[in-house]
């Protein structure tokens, strides 16, 4: 379940290299819905098409999430570039998310 977002009309500081992320959600839970929306907005604004995002529904793939060390949902894992980082929550605080992704506003 990989979605790639591409939006050429983005503005603001952008990541230098492609960012690899995994977002763990639980289907239609309010926090999950909000997290997807928030992340999409951030990507659109700061990453343009320079990212790869995988969204995993924990309800469907619980053992995968368990193996990945996920505790709560929603959780966003940045795998690349290093260092890796994890953000939990519905990603409503944009600046925290950007910092975790290595994008300095």
């Amino acid at each position: 379940m990989v979605r790639k977002k591409k939006d050429p009309g983005a503005s603001g500081p952008v990541a230098a290299t492609a960012v690899v992320m995994v977002l763990y959600i639980t289907d239609s839970g309010p926090n999950s819905v909000r997290a997807v929306a928030n992340l999409e907005a951030i990507c659109k604004e700061h990453l343009q098409d320079n990212f790869r995002l995988e969204i995993i529904d924990v309800l469907q793939y619980p053992l995968r999430a368990l193996a990945d060390g996920i505790v709560v949902t929603p959780s966003l894992a940045k795998l690349f570039p290093l260092p890796t980082a994890t953000v939990v929550g519905n990603l409503s605080d944009k600046s925290d998310v950007l910092r975790a992704l290595g994008i300095v506003e």
């Binding site: 926090n31 309800l59 949902t73 994890t86």
Partner: peptide, 21 residues
């Protein structure tokens, strides 16, 4: 401790994982 918290979260995912296990 490196985990950044941004907004609310819940235990739906955790419970789904526990259920599977």
């Amino acid at each position: 401790p490196d985990v950044v918290q941004s907004g609310e979260f819940d235990l739906r995912g955790l419970l789904a994982m526990l259920q599977a296990k």
